[in-house]
Design a protein around this nucleic acid. Structure first.
Lengths: 193, 193
DNA sequence: AATGGATATGAATATAAATTCATTTGAAGT
DNA sequence: ACTTCAAATGAATTTATATTCATATCCATT
């Protein structure tokens, strides 16, 4: 297995990202990925164990970068409400900036978890951020004390993912980040008059 | 193609449901489905055009039944708040009662839409229910007038789906329907004190 | 410019699994 | 009991594509 930082390694990863996003992991072929990356079929096997491994590395790589950004966004401000706002803004911005990643995260992570249990789990990390923020908000006295936190976390993450799915299905025709503030507003205040 | 209401047709559909849920559509084989359904491999092709068609029919069938139940649940009561509550309760109950369907809906619908555009679209129908309910609530004066309805719909559906995904991942170890009322409470009142 | 080792190639191979079809079974009608 | 035909079977065929590997290319070192 050749060194991970080479130009070809990255070219294959990004090429794979494009093909997986377009056709889905299972319909994507090695030849298509090779072509997209500008290398020969065999070259891929110098850098990756097999097709599953390409998806695995892709997700590991993207997840790591994503979470560094999320961590900064949350740490960049004080107060639960502003932290939550930054978290959602960052999430939407990053997915908007890498639509292939958005598509792959939303559709292939489940399959991957069947083949590699130790895959970096985006939801687990994410839910931990949310726990941290919600508990902070309760300590500050700005959030309700009677929240069932396990449910609130899923409620928040599920809604963001729903928004992203819609944006992906609409082929990215509108500005996803503009949804951040109205969405946080719904989390906080609900829909009742 | 033999008639749809026969015993074998249903046996194959339910068998396929079990195998698709366990292994995912792409890893499932015709032989496994045949075995699960108690028929020979070739028999499947008397009732279905091909493997894609099995998934297609499965989703059409389940979606139709699901929406009849949803329609009744919404019509069974007056007032936006109670309608919304019934909708969510019904959704969670139906998915809890058919876990294979829950898994398949949450993971294979996207693939299917690539191969058959006219697949009954669960989210489209669902979002129409929600529009109906939200507009009613606004007319009654019980819901905020300044809601961006397109966003609210995704917010509601995304959160329910998130809750269901978690329940599926937890292997159905707890009672999903118990989430309905706390969840609706979050939709209505939000998390702010 | 000759050598050697690292890297890349893509045609050939292996494999898995979807689909077909010649054959068999079972049941209804005579 | 015989005939017919729809329904069912599962082994054989076909197809697709992931993976391998013998060969070629590149490039640093002398």
């Amino acid at each position: 297995m050749l060194k991970e930082k080479s130009e070809k390694y990255s070219a294959i990863l990004e090429g794979a990202g494009a093909v997986f996003a377009r056709l889905g992991f299972h319909k994507a072929t090695i030849s298509q990925i090779a072509q997209e990356a500008g290398v020969a079929d065999g070259t891929i096997y110098l850098y990756f164990k097999n097709k599953d491994d390409i998806l695995y590395q892709y997700i590991q790589f993207k997840t790591t970068a994503f979470f560094e950004k999320m961590r900064s966004a949350v740490d960049a401000t004080d107060g639960a409400e502003e932290k939550l706002r930054n978290l959602i803004r960052c999430h939407l911005r990053e997915f908007q900036n890498d639509r292939n990643m958005a598509i792959i995260f939303q559709s292939e992570v489940r399959y991957l978890r069947n083949i590699a249990l130790q895959v970096k789990d985006i939801s687990k990390w994410y839910l931990d951020f949310l726990t941290e923020i919600i508990e902070l908000g309760q300590m500050e006295g700005h959030l309700r004390q009677d929240l069932f936190i396990g449910l609130v976390k899923r409620f928040v993450l599920g809604a963001v993912e729903g928004i992203i799915n819609t944006w992906v299905a609409a082929e990215g025709k509108y500005d996803l980040t503009a949804m951040a503030d109205p969405l946080v507003d719904l989390y906080l205040g609900g829909i009742r008059k």
